[in-house]
Design a protein around this nucleic acid. Structure first.
Lengths: 210, 210
DNA sequence: TGCATACAGTAACATTTATCACATTAGCTC
DNA sequence: GAGCTAATGTGATAAATGTTACTGTATGCA
C-alpha cells in the first residue's frame, strides 16, 4: 500500500520510529476532486495527514459562499482536525477536495499519545498550529483592512504560490465565491488589473504578470 | 507574592505538581491599563498566564485601526504567545491592557517540557488553541458574511459576555476603531438599534436590553 | 452544423459604507 | 452658572460594492 520511504519523503521531519508507528496505525484513504471530507457541525475523530493532492479549507456562508481560509498540501495536516480531535469536538469548517487526494487518518487517541512520546510529532503539530493561525490572521487582515481590489490581488498571489504556477485555472465565478462577492465585481476588477498590466486574461484561466 | 491556593483558584484544572512547577519557575508581572504588552514584529520568549485584569488582542491597521480579535481574561493564556514561543517567532498581533493586569510569564523552554510531563498542562494548551482558533473563525465569519449592523450586534454581545455585564462602557469611537469603521456609522446604527428596543444609549455607556 | 451551456463583458441602478461639515448636548471645571 | 471639551447626532455627498439585466462568445455535444 505505502512504505516507509514514501512517508519519509512527504514528511521528512518525522523520526523513523514515529514513521513506524504511523505505518502500523494509520488508515489510508483516497478521495476524488469535489468530495467533501469535513462539514460544519460534523464530529471529528481523526487527524488528517495529506500524502497527495490538494484540499480547500473554507467557511460556508448561508447563500452558498465558500470563503477560503487556506489550502492543504502534501506534507501538511489539518490543524482544525487536530484541535477538534482532542475532545471529539465538532468541526467549524468545511474541507473540500480540489485535486484527488490520498491521506492518512490518525485516531485521536494516538494523536495525544504521540504528543508525549515523539518529539518530531510534537514539533510538527505545533508548527501546524502556528502556520495556520498565522495564515488565518492574514486573512483577517485582508478582509478587515483591505478593499476588494487588494484582496483580489492577494488571493491571486496565494493561488500562484499554492499551485507553483503563474497560470491560474480559475473562473471569475469561483473567485467571487471564495471572496464572497459577485462575479461582476471580480470581472470589473480583473479588467482593471489587466489594463494596469498586472494580469493577462483568457477564458477559464489567466496569467499573473507581476 | 502569590501562593498555591491563589493559582489553583484561577487555574482549577492544573494539577498540584504543575502548580508547584509554576510557583517555582514563573515570573510575575503587573501592567497598567493602556500598556502594550506585545506588538507586531516583536520576538516572544514567554507564554502569558493571566491572573487578573483584561487584555485585548488585536490586529493593527495602517490608519490606526485596532481590529479586535478577542479578550484575555483571568484563567486564560495567550494562544499566540504559546505558538510563537515554541520557536522564538515574532508576534503577528498586538496585546494591550484594558484593565490593570497581573500575569505570569513562563519561559518557552518550560512550556515545551511541561507539554510532555504534565497532562493538565497539555490539555490546557490544546484547549487554549482550540478556543481561540474557533473565536477567530467566528470573527472571520462576521466580517466575511455580515454587514456592519449585524457585526455591531455581535460585537456588543461579545463585550457583554466578556465583562459579565449588560452595561457596556464604550464610546462610539472605540467601537468604530475596533470594527474598523467610522464613528458616524456606529452612531447611526446604534440609534437604529435603540429604536428597535435592543439597546438603551447613554453618554459613554449603554445597556443591552436583549 | 447547429444548439445548449457555461463563461465573460458591460451598462444602469440600488444599497451600503465612508467622508465631510457642522449642530447639539452632557458633564466637568472654575 | 459660564464656559470648555469630549461625545454624540445628523444631513449631504462621494465612493465602493452589490444587483439586475442584458449581450456576446467560446466550447462541447447531439
Amino acid at each position: 500500500m505505502h512504505d516507509l520511504g514514501d512517508l519519509k519523503k512527504v514528511f521528512p521531519s518525522f523520526s523513523d520510529d514515529l514513521i513506524n508507528e504511523i505505518e502500523t496505525n494509520a488508515v489510508r484513504h483516497s478521495y476524488k476532486a469535489g468530495d467533501i471530507i469535513m462539514r460544519t457541525g460534523q464530529y471529528i475523530n481523526n487527524t488528517l495527514l495529506i500524502l497527495k493532492g490538494q484540499i480547500k479549507i473554507y467557511r460556508e456562508g448561508e447563500n452558498g459562499g465558500e470563503f477560503l481560509m487556506y489550502y492543504l498540501q502534501p506534507g501538511q495536516a489539518c490543524a482544525v482536525s487536530m484541535i477538534c480531535a482532542t475532545k471529539s469536538q465538532t468541526s467549524q469548517i468545511m474541507a473540500k477536495v480540489v485535486e484527488d487526494v490520498d491521506l492518512l487518518m490518525i485516531p485521536l487517541t494516538l494523536m495525544e499519545k504521540w504528543m508525549m512520546e515523539y518529539r518530531s510529532w510534537y514539533e510538527f503539530v505545533i508548527f501546524t498550529y502556528r502556520t495556520r493561525f498565522e495564515e488565518v490572521l492574514e486573512v483577517i487582515d485582508n478582509i478587515a483592512f483591505r478593499a476588494m481590489d487588494e484582496r483580489l490581488e492577494f488571493y491571486l498571489k496565494r493561488h500562484a504560490d499554492a499551485s507553483g504556477s503563474k497560470d491560474l485555472k480559475l473562473s471569475h465565478q469561483e473567485i467571487a465565491t471564495e471572496l464572497n462577492t459577485s462575479r461582476e465585481v471580480i470581472s470589473r476588477l480583473l479588467k482593471k488589473m489587466e489594463q494596469r498590466g498586472m494580469v493577462k486574461l483568457h477564458r477559464n484561466h489567466m496569467q499573473l504578470l507581476t
